[in-house]
């Protein structure tokens, strides 16, 4: 589904991704962990098409197509969804109507008929339950005045309505209390299916108690330093990231990477 090969990216003059290789198969859940500044969020932004990041080398293939060639909206229309670490407030634009416009843009691109107001409302009500969303948040402007937890839930709600083929969650768990974390995780778990993949980017192991990953990757200094199963996350929780960082762990890390 998603193939990343030797991906290099920089912002301004700073190289942040220094050769990422990652394969995400259909229906798989991959967790990407790593310390601050390791490039986790950059990876998410590059996948979603943020133009501030310049890809200097490498390839990304999504469903057999060259992802890097597509503008962000086409990536979304092809089925990529990124849940933002910091969802943006858009005053004056209704959460529901905006989502309807987004869904219809995606459906149109996929050759489907646009959804009318009645069917859309049915869909929205069903998905709302998924993330335990307060109906009031539907009628408010997008993220406007939402609490941190509400914003993250709203991201999962958007994901649930747009039904992407690949969802990239950029630190959706950061800053959430345990109730909100459970709601977000349940939302994701309900969405898991044989034809939908997830990349869960996180700083903390905690969310992986609720969303069980098939694979865990550790990103250090712009490269995947280690990949493994879900046990790797537990190991990281115990040992921290330092032992994987060549700058801090010296030869030990070099041995691991070899």
């Amino acid at each position: 589904m998603l193939k990343i090969r030797n991906l290099h990216a920089r912002v301004d003059d700073k190289e942040i991704l220094k050769g990422i290789d990652l394969d995400v198969g259909l229906g798989e859940v991959h967790a990407v962990m790593g310390p601050n500044g390791s490039g986790k969020s950059t990876l998410a932004q590059v996948l979603a098409g943020r133009e501030d990041y310049e890809v200097t080398a490498g390839e990304v293939e999504f469903g057999g197509e060259d992802l890097l060639e597509m503008p962000p909206e086409d990536r979304a229309r092809e089925g990529i969804f990124m849940a933002f670490q910091y969802p943006v407030e858009i005053p004056g634009v209704s959460n529901t109507y905006f989502l309807k416009a987004a869904l219809n843009a995606i459906r149109k691109h996929q050759g489907l008929e646009e959804m009318d107001a009645i069917d859309f409302l049915k869909l929205v009500r069903a998905k709302m339950k998924l993330v335990n969303m307060d109906e009031a948040l539907l009628n408010r402007p997008v993220n406007d005045g939402f609490s941190g937890g509400e914003k993250k839930r709203n991201e999962i709600f958007h994901m649930a309505v747009l039904e992407p083929r690949l969802a990239v969650l950029d630190e959706t768990d950061s800053g959430l209390d345990i109730d909100a974390l459970k709601i977000v995780s349940e939302g994701v778990n309900t969405m898991r299916s044989a034809d939908r993949s997830f990349v869960v980017i996180t700083h903390y192991q905690r969310i992986l108690n609720y969303i069980e990953p098939d694979f865990v990757h550790v990103l250090v200094d712009g490269r995947i330093a280690r990949s493994g199963g879900k046990d790797l996350a537990l190991e990281l929780e115990d040992k921290g990231y330092a032992w994987l960082d060549p700058k801090t762990a010296g030869t030990a890390a070099a041995a691991v990477m070899a």
Binding site: A48, P71, R75
Partner: peptide, 12 residues
């Protein structure tokens, strides 16, 4: 904000 909206499938 422009990127946020585009990432949901809305054209630029």
């Amino acid at each position: 904000a422009v990127f946020y909206l585009r990432s949901r499938g809305i054209g630029e």
